[in-house]
């Protein structure tokens, strides 16, 4: 009867043992002690999470340096080579031979980065972007004649990267010749340290394509520029910067001369076949473009820009201020007299 009224009378408890209680107590104490260590141990103790100033928890960016990509030139060769007449391929070959031939600069097994100017979503005939023919020709030379391991083509355009590379014809040219195009995304940038630069001592840089690269060649169009008079070989490196680049127009000559310090390319190539004479740097109308007959290759970007300013853009008068600043920063010499060989 009693069982029916109190059905739980025969219930057996399972009491916690003393041992279990002690274990539990020790566990709680150990966990609290460990947590207290993490929270209160001074910053220099191992494993301490203490952040007295609030600065420890801030991110520390990875900062890297670029190597010098230059190759010593043979004494008998010229600093600047100018190829005239014939197809683009012939002009390029002539100009390269004047500075010692491409085989002298790119060795078998090299990984080469080519930096064209792909800033805008424009077709090649408008002169706002690099000439795809030269890019195609150069990649073939590098892969076939020099037996380089890999050629990469990279730029950080102002407009949609995929569209700029497609409509400028540069993606097609690069891929047909066996090169590989790198487009920038938000993850592709790291902070580059450039000692000696005034404005970009530390600045986000399009790092991804530079992994294991040992030779760098810039291919730039020759363009009028509304603010700095001319956008030439040195200004082309602007396209590797990330971040809020539009501040640079407040001191455009300083930034362009900084670019000459930021990177020492193996070679620079200036396209004198489609010259944007006015309404630069965007152009937009075929009437802004003059068709020339020259390809300029060189190892001194400052001298190249000075020569191109006077002879390709056909400007008289004072050179752009950034060239004097670049010279003062030791990036090259403006005076090109006697250093240029013209091959017709």
């Amino acid at each position: 009867m009693a069982k029916e009224k109190y059905p739980h009378l025969d219930y057996q408890q399972r009491q916690m043992s003393r041992r279990d209680l002690i274990k539990k107590g020790v566990g709680i104490a150990a966990a609290s002690a460990a947590a207290s260590y993490l929270a209160f141990a001074p910053e220099h103790f191992p494993l301490s999470l203490k952040d007295d100033s609030g600065l420890r928890s801030l991110p520390t960016p990875d900062i890297f340096r670029l190597p010098d990509f230059r190759v010593a030139k043979e004494k008998s060769k010229f600093d600047l080579g100018l190829g005239r007449s014939g197809s683009v391929a012939v002009k390029l070959k002539k100009a390269l031979d004047a500075v010692g031939g491409i085989e002298h600069y790119v060795k078998p097994g090299d990984i080469v980065l080519i930096k064209p100017n792909v800033a805008f979503d424009r077709s090649p005939n408008l002169g706002a972007t690099s000439n795809p023919e030269i890019i195609k020709e150069l990649i073939q030379l590098i892969l076939v004649d020099c037996r380089a391991a890999e050629v990469r083509v990279a730029d950080n355009p102002i407009e949609s990267p995929a569209d700029c590379f497609a409509k400028s014809g540069i993606r097609l040219a690069a891929e047909q010749a066996g090169g590989r195009v790198y487009l920038p995304d938000s993850n592709a940038f790291e902070i580059l340290s450039t000692p000696g630069a005034v404005l970009i001592e530390q600045w986000p840089f399009f790092k991804r394509p530079f992994r294991d690269v040992n030779k760098v060649i810039g291919i730039a169009p020759v363009k009028d520029h509304n603010l700095c008079q001319a956008s030439l070989g040195i200004k082309n490196w602007y396209g590797l910067l990330g971040g809020r680049r539009n501040q640079f127009h407040q001191d455009i000559h300083e930034i362009i001369s900084d670019l000459s310090v930021m990177i020492q390319p193996t070679l620079t190539i200036l396209d004198g076949t489609h010259i944007l004479m006015e309404n630069g740097p965007t152009g937009g109308d075929p009437s802004n473009v003059k068709n020339g007959d020259a390809v300029l290759v060189g190892v001194d970007p400052v001298a190249m820009d000075a020569w191109a300013f006077e002879h390709l853009l056909e400007r008289t008068g004072e050179l752009p201020e950034y060239l004097y600043k670049a010279e003062a920063k030791g990036s090259g010499k403006i005076d090109y007299r006697g250093r240029l060989k013209e091959v017709v």
């Binding site: 509304n226 603010l227 539009n246 127009h249 001191d251 309404n279 937009g284 109308d285 802004n288």
Partner: peptide
């Protein structure tokens, strides 16, 4: 000095 807007204006003439 600053003239970014003029630089990037894509129409011709600007």
């Amino acid at each position: 000095p600053c003239v970014v807007c003029e630089e990037v204006c894509p129409v011709s003439p600007k």
